[in-house]
């Protein structure tokens, strides 16, 4: 990592360091400022909110906005819906994804690059191009406006991500262990279950987090296939709060904070893993 930067004399070096940290601080502030501002909006009194946008707090912070949105049954329902949709999508993707990834990373077969290209092509595939045909088919099967419709659509777009990440993780695992298992008489499937899966647990876990975030953040399919509050996730419900809570900007801000804070915490705890997961594909090209 060294060597990429120019090194001047002592004086210009410390000046460069100051400039560097000023740049960094600016960058970090710009990244997190909106979240902090919205958090502030969610805890101030109505008078403070409207007084003057840049006003500092004149009254003690209040939790009124949070009481409003958690008192709203449709918001609580939306949180539950999001959790179910993202959770089930993650489980399905991990199951099929790990099978496919193991096969690609470890086993020998002829059409491997065609298979990988096909899977990869999905990441370039515009989801919006298929919402009309899927809408017709889901209606025909009677699964429109159910979790199933969105889970199916989410799975096909999250699966390539899962496969891609897991291939990278599986390739890093030492090969000798499974070979030892096979010599001891284990089948390919047993070697996968007993040796690879436990060893790959950290990688699989990272993958689960990324898939979950992907499904939790999904909007287009949910907005197209789900019409009723009984099935809509938070991403669909919250933008509509602009009409439900017309001028209750505090409640809108509180809702935004509630759905992003868990993600932010997740990201802060697992940032190292997430970064290595996200960049695993890009580096290899």
């Amino acid at each position: 990592m060294a060597g990429a930067t120019a090194r001047g004399g002592e004086g210009s070096r410390s000046f460069n360091m100051i400039l560097f940290y000023v740049f960094l601080i600016g960058f970090v502030l710009v990244s997190i400022a909106p979240l902090i501002w919205i958090f502030k909006m969610s805890i101030v009194t109505r008078a403070d909110l409207f007084a003057s946008p840049a006003a500092t707090l004149t009254a003690a912070p209040i939790a009124g906005s949070y009481e409003t949105i958690f008192g709203d049954a449709s918001f609580r329902r939306a949180l539950l819906n999001s959790t179910i949709i993202a959770g089930v999508t993650t489980v399905i993707c991990l199951f099929f994804g790990s099978l496919a990834a193991y096969s690609i990373a470890r086993l020998r077969f002829s059409f491997k690059s065609s298979v990988m290209t096909l899977i990869l092509a999905i990441s370039f595939f515009p989801g919006v191009a298929i919402i009309a045909p899927l809408f017709l088919q889901f209606s025909a099967f009677g699964i429109i406006d159910t979790y199933v419709s969105v889970i199916i659509a989410n799975t096909v777009f999250a699966l390539p991500l899962t496969v891609w990440l897991l291939v990278a993780f599986f390739k890093e695992l030492p090969k000798d262990l499974e070979e030892a298992a096979k010599i001891d008489g284990a089948t390919t499937i047993q070697a996968f279950q007993k040796v690879i899966v436990p060893l790959a647990a950290p990688g699989v876990f990272t993958c689960a987090i990324l898939t979950f975030i992907h499904a939790w953040n999904e909007f287009l399919f949910a907005n197209t296939f789900l019409f009723t509050p009984a099935t809509q996730p938070v991403t669909v419900v919250i933008p509509n709060f602009a009409t439900t809570y017309t001028t209750d900007y505090g409640a809108q801000a509180a809702a935004a904070v509630v759905v992003t804070v868990p993600l932010v915490i997740l990201v802060l705890i697992f940032q190292r893993r997430i970064v290595s997961g996200l960049t695993a594909g890009a580096v290899k090209g």
Partner: peptide, 9 residues
């Protein structure tokens, strides 16, 4: 942090 937010949010 910005990356983890849902785009709509």
């Amino acid at each position: 942090v910005p990356w983890a937010f849902p785009t709509v949010i």
